[in-house]
Amino acid sequence: MSDAVSPMNGATFEGFVTVSDTGPRGMITLRGAPEELARMAKALGPDLPEPLSMTAKGPVTLAWMSPDELMVLCDYDAAPGLAGKAEAAVAGAHALVAVVSDARAIYRLDGPDAADVLRKLTPARLDGAQVGTIRRTRLAQSAGAFWMTGPGLFEVMCFRSEGQYVWTLLCNAARPGSELNL
């Protein structure tokens, strides 16, 4: 749906790390007991993720959010359809499926020192971060989450209303000359 406008509307900032708004992304909150989560995961494709991890199959990624909650990441336009699939998989059982594609913003950090940008904002451990894990944490004064998508590549998620604050935080942390040189 081309009319959807993410909070930073595709902006890019070139610092010692490139910060970019990834634009609208499909997101679905799934809540349920482990059996229901497993059924929904099966219907959507990826394996059921272990705690603090992410699994993917094709364009669909599942992120572990809490013992009874997963988040689906997918194409923006695909979210309603996938939500329907998930709901169908648990029809009659106790579970919750909600499309939340507009509730959050996702930014990308790109550069060999991408982790250093996060090191300035979160008390979470960055050493040993690897593709396939997700950490929900605090980014300065905001709630957020981050995950690694490749060497020197991170995605950072925050609530939409704090999207501008977190964007400014990331760009400020990536300003040239402030490399941590660890």
């Binding site: 705690p51 603090l52 572990w64 013992p67 979470a124 451990r125 605090r138």
Partner: peptide
């Protein structure tokens, strides 16, 4: 005890 994270006080 749910996610195993060693959480900093500022995350709690």
């Amino acid at each position: 005890p749910y996610c195993g994270v060693e959480a900093d006080e500022t995350e709690l």
